[in-house]
Computed example of a mutant assay.
Amino acid sequence: MLIGVPKEIKNQESRVGLTPASTRELAIHGHEVWIESGAGAAIGLPDDAYAAAGATICRTAEEIFLHAEMIVKVKEPQPVELAMLRPQQILYTYLHLAPDPQQAAGLVKSGAVCIAYETITRAGGGLPLLAPMSEVAGRMSIQVAAAHLEIPRGGMGLLMGGVPGVASAHVVILGAGVVGTNALQMAVGLGARVTVIDRDVDRLRQLDLVYGNRIMTLHSSAQAIEESVREADVVIGGVLIPGAAAPRLVTREMISSMRKGAVVVDVAIDQGGCFETSHATTHAEPTYVVDGVVHYCVANMPGAVARTSTFALNNATIAYAVALADKGWKRALAENAHLRAGLNVCQGHITHKAVAKALGLPYRPAEEFAA
Rank of each mutant, 00 (worst) to 15 (best):
V72P: 01
L204I: 02
A358Y: 01
I43W: 02
Y211G: 14
A187H: 12
G189A: 06
E285K: 15
Q143E: 11
T181E: 13
S256E: 11
P128L: 15
A112W: 07
V239F: 09
D233W: 02
L97Q: 01
G180N: 08
C346K: 03
K7R: 08
K260A: 14
G157N: 05
V196C: 05
I142G: 02
A262K: 15
R139F: 06
A105Q: 14
G175N: 02
T119Q: 07
M140W: 01
K7L: 02
A52C: 03
K357L: 14
A245D: 08
D291E: 15
E13Y: 03
Q347C: 07
M160W: 05
L129Y: 06
V263Q: 03
R230P: 00
Y320T: 14
Y296H: 15
G191P: 01
A169F: 00
P132N: 12
G328R: 02
G138S: 12
I318L: 13
I43D: 04
V267R: 11
G273W: 08
S309Q: 10
D200K: 12
V172I: 12
I225P: 00
A262P: 15
R307E: 14
V234R: 04
A222L: 06
I35T: 08
E335S: 13
L66F: 06
L361H: 09
I120Y: 05
